[in-house]
């Protein structure tokens, strides 16, 4: 049933900005730019999707279908995960290209490399953990959960920029273009993937419990 609901998410609920924001992975080619912001735009399109769901009475439509109430949460978070992972995969070849065309690196935060992709996954995991449990408390209020998630996302961007300037290990090893120091960079990517998985699962569990208690009117 989750597969069918997922198809519904893509055909009916998805906001048109989602595929556009996915293309913003190309922003890693911009010289001296806080690249994590490109991934923040993806979360913005996910917020629009939830807004779109509210404006189209998606919850009542979906709940009148032969599905369990909890299936709705699972399919929305799965849809979100697919979009988030797609954006990281889409950005990956451009991070390689970025190292080739701008070997001097990025002066505004992390260089376009594997660590950046790990950070993007951490950003998505944090977004999911902050946004969804708050959203599923009351799906008619989409703005407040997004503001909370924005605060966390931009805090992460700020921390990233500070670390790149202030911590020598980050500056000399992690914040370097291309595949230099490949082992620690790969470990950072894996840590990002692990945190994404754990945080998204936690978001799903809490959201599911809250949505079960929510009255859809």
């Amino acid at each position: 049933m989750t597969g069918k609901l997922l198809k519904k998410e893509f055909t009916l609920t998805m906001h048109p900005t989602v595929p556009i924001m996915l293309l913003l992975g190309t922003m890693v080619l911009i010289p001296n730019y806080p690249y994590l912001v490109a991934f923040f735009y993806v979360t913005l399109s996910l917020f629009f999707t939830c807004l779109n769901a509210r404006e189209n009475n998606d919850a009542v439509f979906s709940l009148s279908l032969p599905v369990k109430k909890t299936d709705l949460v699972r399919s929305r978070i799965l849809f979100t995960g697919i979009i988030e992972l797609s954006s990281v995969l889409f950005a990956a070849p451009f991070t390689i290209l970025s190292a080739k065309i701008a070997p001097q690196g990025n002066a505004a935060g992390m260089d376009a490399n594997l660590v950046l992709l790990g950070q993007a996954l951490l950003l998505f995991g944090l977004f999911n953990l902050v946004f969804f449990p708050s959203y599923y408390k009351d799906i008619s209020k989409v703005g407040v959960p997004f503001v909370k998630a924005c605060v966390v996302s931009f805090a992460l961007v700020a921390v990233d920029i500070c670390l790149c300037y202030a911590v020598p290990y980050v500056k000399d090893v992690l914040d370097t273009p291309g595949f230099a120091h490949i082992v620690p960079k790969t470990l950072c990517l894996l840590a990002g993937a692990l945190s994404f998985t754990v945080l998204t699962l936690a978001a799903y569990k809490v959201s599911e419990k809250r949505f079960l208690k929510l009255d859809i009117r």
């Binding site: 189209n56 009475n57 599905v67």
Partner: peptide, 26 residues
Amino acid sequence: EAGIKQKIGYVSGAVNFYPKKKLRSI
């Protein structure tokens, strides 16, 4: 829940689902 809903048809006069999507798509 899903099995029961297979046999139920819900029609509401007040709610408007996906007003800008074609009936064919819905």
